[in-house]
Design a protein around this nucleic acid. Structure first.
Lengths: 135, 135
DNA sequence: GCAATAACTTAGAACGGTTCTAAGGTTCTT
DNA sequence: AAGAACCTTAGAACCGTTCTAAGTTATTGC
């Protein structure tokens, strides 16, 4: 009798989202197992492989809703393609330009000193560090 | 008798590009005056205002060629829109998320310590720091 | 200077990723 | 179980960017 994995129903509800079949299936793929970096297309392919029918539009909707709810973080590294990161903690990225791979590293290892003050009338939202590497 | 501004002809030739009317007009808008952040659309609007007819396709071609030649740097800060920066020196960016503005700051002011080693088999290309702020 | 050649520009079509539409289906409340 | 609110979907639309094929301009060799 099946207690398999976390109850996504509760976190979805907490985010103000109904735990529909599709959203639960997507949450399972995204949040069970370690941290992930996905694109809409890659996630769509993955969830379809679990035999749960989900349209690409729903994948896009869900990624945006999860991002807005703080369940995912969007990472912009290259033009014309969005990555979503299941790691929402403080961390930065290696981006392997030659093959589009993304790897996390904790921001605790890194010290950034001497950042100038934000422009007049703005407040800091986040500091992103992208270490671009090539194979 | 007109020595107005730098001779873009020579830098274009140095980059292996013929100094056509369009490219020279674009170079003038981009490289005379201080550092700039442009998008294809914004640059197209600007150069058309100088009464030199240039198609949007040529603006895209030219931006890509200038980038490849090291005359411009492409900055990716938000999905679905590319900025080009005439400052090709070492520096980082403030990005004002609420209105899409981009501001440089020199990387000399900033110290980044404790960056982890690049993944196996890769070599460092560049470190981008994007400080995201909101109004 | 004048061809011939190679490079460039252009309008418009095509493209790829993302969002929208409006119709039907699901979930929640009572 | 019924009503209302919310969700999913296929396909169209969209938007920034790239491609295509035809005409134009810069360069090279004479």
């Amino acid at each position: 009798m099946s207690d398999n994995g976390p109850d996504h129903t509760v976190s979805l509800r907490a985010a103000g989202l109904r735990p529909t079949r599709q959203r639960v299936a997507l949450a399972r793929v995204l949040f069970e197992g370690g941290h992930r970096h996905v694109t809409a297309e890659s996630l769509h392919a993955e969830v379809k492989a679990t035999r749960m029918p989900v349209s690409l539009a729903t994948v896009y909707n869900t990624l945006n809703q999860f991002r807005d709810a703080g369940l995912l973080r969007e990472v912009v590294v290259a033009p014309g393609r969005s990555y979503f990161d299941t790691n929402t903690g403080h961390h930065h990225h290696f981006f392997v330009e030659t093959d589009g791979e993304l790897h996390d590293f904790s921001s605790e290892e890194v010290t950034i000193a001497g950042l100038p003050a934000p422009p007049e009338g703005t407040t800091l939202a986040r500091v992103d560090v992208i270490v671009r590497v090539r194979r």
